[in-house]
């Protein structure tokens, strides 16, 4: 009786989830627009130093809306430009990681036997590294900079996708339409393309979105530690790293890039939540 009567609560939750989708979508579009803007227009050259105009506070000079840093570079331009490297690194890394992870998961699920055990155990091993330790190790191996960051984040993203695909395929083997398809002798490739892909795609999209949020967090952390994107390139984490020398006197140096990071991570997280509801829960 209780679940029959709970439709009002359910509708409330649905409204809340819709708001997730709208908020998340809005924020991610904003970040994407920022990135596009960097190709069309920027108030200043992000790397142009202007030693006469160091530490101009926000609002002090209309030409520099968010102020300038220790080299007199325009902070707003650097934030706009920084979105490029953050998004580029994160998208490439998550794309590679998800591809590798999904493939490994699919192989493990279809092959079964010892190969499957080896793959899934290695995934367990990758999952066991605490926090960003694995990412830092990859940086040590590949080297600092964009390639290192991509490798670090990419490897980090393999386990969640591998596990997702693996368990989804195993679960769906019992679904009737897949049993039926197998019973009339469908080819493996067709089975994968026609039946598993539509089943997997919504989950993969949701996971991908949420992972972008996590990737931004790792990328900015690495850059903040000086292990990610290297100067003089602009990146949000790097800007915060550079701000460390002077932020006690000029706190505004750290505000802009931090807000940019928080909003983009929040945006992708919320979008992931919203998509999860839209694509997965409503279907079931």
């Amino acid at each position: 009786m209780r679940c029959k009567a709970s439709d009002s609560v359910a509708s409330k939750i649905r409204i809340k989830k819709k708001y997730h989708l709208i908020m998340g979508g809005g924020l991610t579009v904003l970040v994407a627009a920022l990135c596009l803007l960097s190709f069309i227009y920027m108030p200043h050259n992000p790397n142009e130093m202007n030693l006469g105009l160091r530490f101009v506070g926000p609002g002090q000079n209309p030409a520099f809306l968010l102020g300038t840093d220790n080299f007199g570079r325009d902070i707003l331009s650097r934030i706009i430009y920084g979105s490029r490297s953050v998004l580029l690194v994160c998208f490439v890394a998550v794309a590679l990681g998800s591809l590798a992870g999904s493939l490994l998961g699919a192989i493990a699920a279809i092959a079964k036997g010892p190969l499957s055990a080896v793959i899934m155990r290695s995934i367990d091993g990758l999952m066991a590294f605490p926090g960003i330790l694995l990412a830092m190790m990859m940086v040590a191996a590949v080297g600092k900079g964009q390639e290192g960051a991509v490798a670090a984040i990419g490897v980090f993203m393999i386990p969640p996708f591998a596990r997702l695909v693996y368990s989804l395929i195993l679960d769906s083997e019992n679904l009737l339409f897949i049993k039926a398809a197998k019973s009339y002798g469908i080819s493996r490739r067709r089975l994968l393309a026609k039946h598993y892909l539509p089943l997997l795609l919504p989950r993969l999209i949701t996971q991908f979105t949420a992972c972008i949020g996590a990737a931004i967090m790792i990328e900015t952390s690495l850059s903040f530690l000086g292990l990610g994107i290297q100067p003089p390139n602009a990146s949000w984490g790097l800007m915060l790293n550079e701000a460390r020398q002077n932020f006690l006197q000029y706190p505004y140096l750290a505000v802009g890039p931090g807000v940019a990071i928080a909003l983009s991570v929040l945006g992708f997280n919320l979008l992931g939540d919203g998509l999860n509801d839209l694509l997965i829960r409503r279907r079931s």
Partner: peptide, 29 residues
């Protein structure tokens, strides 16, 4: 579904979106 619930949901979202190093820098200041 009261204020406490919404505040803690907000805190949850915030905690997982704002990087620790930035919170650290801001709290130092």
């Amino acid at each position: 579904n009261t204020a406490v619930d919404y505040v803690s949901t907000g805190l949850m979202q915030l905690g997982s979106s704002v990087p620790a190093f930035w919170i650290g820098m801001m709290s130092i200041v």
